[in-house]
Computed example of a mutant assay.
Amino acid sequence: MGDSLSEGVGDRVDGGWRGWAVLLAGGLGGPGRRVEFRNFAVSGAQSRDVAELQAARALAFRPDVASVVVGVNDTLRHTFDIERFARRLDRVCGDLAAEGAVLLTACLPDPGRMLGLPAPLARPLARRQRAVNALVHAVSARYGAVHLHLANTAWTDDRTLWSADRLHPGERGHRVIAARFHALLADRGLAQGAPPSTAPDRPPPSRADALLWLATAGTGWVARRCRDLLPQLLALAGSELRHRAAGTDALLDRRAAHSLAAALAVVSPGPGTPVTPTMGA
Rank of each mutant, 00 (worst) to 15 (best):
P204F: 06
H168W: 11
P204S: 10
A237N: 12
A55Y: 06
L24P: 03
Q129D: 03
A41F: 07
R48V: 13
N39A: 04
L150R: 06
D11Q: 06
D14W: 00
G10W: 10
G100L: 05
L185P: 02
A154N: 06
A215Q: 01
L185F: 06
A183N: 03
V68W: 08
G280S: 02
D110E: 11
L252P: 07
F61D: 08
S4D: 15
S268I: 01
P124F: 08
G2M: 13
A151R: 14
S268P: 02
T160V: 09
Q129N: 01
G100W: 10
L76V: 00
H182D: 06
L23Y: 07
V70M: 02
P31A: 15
R244H: 11
G220P: 06
R242Q: 13
V222N: 09
A179T: 03
R202I: 08
G26F: 09
V9H: 12
A263Q: 01
R34G: 00
R57M: 12
N133E: 09
A55S: 15
A25T: 08
L212M: 09
L260H: 05
S140V: 05
A245M: 08
S206A: 09
V22C: 12
A257L: 10
H182Q: 03
A237K: 00
V13C: 15
C93G: 03
G30R: 01
R142L: 10
R227L: 15
A21L: 10
H174A: 11
E52W: 07
T105M: 02
S197C: 07
R34W: 05
G32S: 08
V65N: 00
L185S: 05
R175H: 13
L212H: 10
G32V: 02
L108P: 04
G2C: 12
D158F: 00
A263D: 01
R38E: 13
T216A: 14
D249G: 05
